[in-house]
């Protein structure tokens, strides 16, 4: 794998992750604001199913099957030929379609910069903010038990 393939793979992993985790309503709002209506063909219509979630015994040991989770997947091909796919936790078909379309367009250099700035960046900012809020709430419950010997950290 060449360096640039590696980079584009991780760039794609990044936007796929943001598109999957984004709040469904926020995704649709941002997407509609872009007013892009690409021509596309379904390779796989949005489809709801399950994936078996796996864990590791003791967190780092042998894998085991933890239980299933719902997810929705979709694949579209644009007129340009690029294939966009999505795998989104939950059962929201519209979310999966939009994520697949965005994934396809993001592979297109003509759209990439605009979509990164106007779709991925704002959605990611929301995810980051939500995470920071959760962390702050958890952090507020952090406790130092009374202790006789404890170095300052």
């Amino acid at each position: 794998m060449t360096m640039s393939e590696q980079q584009s793979k991780s760039a794609r992993q990044h936007w796929i992750s943001v598109l999957a985790k984004a709040d469904s309503k926020a995704l649709q709002d941002q997407w509609q604001a872009l007013a892009i209506e690409p021509e596309y063909q379904f390779i796989r219509k949005p489809e709801i199913g399950l994936t078996m979630m796996r864990g590791r015994v003791g967190g780092s040991g042998q894998p085991f099957n933890l239980g299933e989770m719902t997810l929705t997947r979709c694949a579209v091909r644009l007129a340009s030929g690029s294939l966009g796919v999505s795998y989104v936790a939950g059962r929201n078909k519209a979310h999966a379609l939009t994520a697949a379309l965005a994934d396809a367009l993001l592979q297109d250099r003509d759209y990439q910069v605009a979509l990164q700035e106007q779709l991925i960046a704002p959605l990611e900012a929301q995810l980051v903010a939500a995470k920071a809020e959760r962390e702050a709430k958890a952090s507020a419950t952090k406790v130092d038990f009374f202790t006789l010997v404890r170095g300052e950290d």
Binding site: T51, M53, Y87
Partner: peptide, 10 residues
């Protein structure tokens, strides 16, 4: 529901 495979271990 159909099964879409297995996740990576969390």
């Amino acid at each position: 529901l159909p099964r879409f495979g297995y996740s990576e271990p969390v």
